[in-house]
Write a protein that binds this DNA or RNA. Structure first.
Lengths: 231, 231
DNA sequence: AAAAGTATGTTGCTATAGCAACATACTTTT
DNA sequence: AAAAGTATGTTGCTATAGCAACATACTTTT
């Protein structure tokens, strides 16, 4: 129980809720489930009418295609939320696969907690809905950035856009990226060896310096106000 | 006033609200604005603390890059909602440009209507938040589908994925697509003439038939249950 | 109905990035 | 410390899609 509360606190979803509301109205509806690595929790066309908070483990949100290829949409970590983007839609049908990428524990809660009056005092239902909307919105923005990157035609342009966005988010021109080369190639939807080649080329040309995941950008001048502009 | 109510009804956002709540608590906070075509209503890093319902006209949500290129994220039409994806985030900062693509009228409402207690009875605040979350979720899913398409490397693969998704959404293998060739090329992030060439090739090979925006798919067999599978 | 304008299709050439195969560097296991 | 395994970089070849330039079809204007 203590451990559960810990896991839930990490999620910030109920952070502003009074203890007694959490204890009396929310926790009683929890349903804890454990899964081994490699299981498919949600598949396309499946109805999702609950949301889950990851207590431990890792879940990949992905599209898997008939010919065997797949594209990773998101990787959920402890404290993050599963299914929030589906419970408010009319059909509640998933467009994606959710697959455990490690042994995983999830605390599920019924969608009605947020979507229907009755389970929570209305002020806290509104607050929960607001928090879920915030989570969905953040995912939305991430996808928008990735679309902006993928809409660049050239490999170099994609790399530059990716690095520029990273720099502007972090407000610095030197930083570690959260991807291995292979993962970065997948994120940018390009061939890994072509990516390596282009990065080396860019380093030769003096545009960037890098070792492993650590990058320094030399092509961005901070603006007058010291801010690094998004684009 | 009558016309305003008409425009708002088209949006479905307040569809389930009692007349008196709309009249007493919502409409008084409206702020109607008119814009000529070609104006930039929202730019990156701008704080957005209200949402707007399009009464007439058209708004393009897009990323515009320094070198002059841009990528279209969405095109808002009357009844659709501007800024909903931003008001619930912590910073409320926009990552995108919103540009009028025609003379446009918008009814704005303060974010607090949904995000803070006080302006609406809590039950209706929760309902409004739920409706906005639904709108955001739908946008989310659209972006996810587009990411699935753009993560296909080949031009033909992108076309096939696009057509397959259209077919599965409409549950038929013949349909009109909502894009001109130029728009489809932009959506798929490919060269228009390369797209035309590939479509012609696919027709020669008997995979599809098309004239103008009307497509017939011959590569999809409906599943046993008669459903057309997503992928 | 003619003319102008726009959208779409066609073709050849070429730059680009994918692929394969291997080299090197780094990490983990024993 | 050696060995095995994994991640990353390098290179040459080639398929693919972008581009330009033009042809044809369709739409709108006058």
């Amino acid at each position: 129980m203590e451990m559960l509360l810990e896991g839930l606190k990490k999620s910030e979803l109920f952070a502003d809720f009074p203890e007694e509301i959490v204890a009396d109205c929310i926790l009683p509806h929890r349903q804890i489930q454990e899964y081994r690595k490699g299981l498919c929790l949600i598949r396309p066309q499946q109805k999702v009418s609950r949301f889950g908070i990851l207590l431990s483990g890792k879940i990949n949100i992905m599209h898997i295609f008939m010919e065997g290829s797949c594209s990773l949409i998101n990787a959920l970590r402890p404290g993050e939320i599963l299914g929030a983007d589906l419970i408010f839609t009319r059909s509640q049908l998933s467009p994606y696969h959710a697959v455990t990428a490690a042994d995983t524990r999830i605390a599920y809660f019924p969608a009605e907690l947020a979507t229907r009056p009755g389970m929570l005092p209305e002020i806290w239902r509104a607050e929960l809905t607001r928090q879920l909307a915030a989570w969905i919105s953040n995912g939305n923005i991430k996808k928008e950035y990735r679309l902006a990157i993928l809409s660049q035609k050239g490999l170099r342009e994609r790399i530059l856009m990716f690095l520029t966005l990273q720099a502007s988010r972090r407000q610095t021109t030197s930083f570690a990226i959260p991807f291995s080369r292979e993962e970065l190639a997948a994120y940018l939807c390009v061939n890994r060896s072509a990516l390596s080649r282009e990065l080396s080329l860019m380093q030769e040309e003096g545009l960037i310096t890098f070792q492993k995941n650590y990058f320094r950008l030399h092509f961005l001048k901070p603006a007058e106000n010291g801010q690094i502009l998004p684009y």
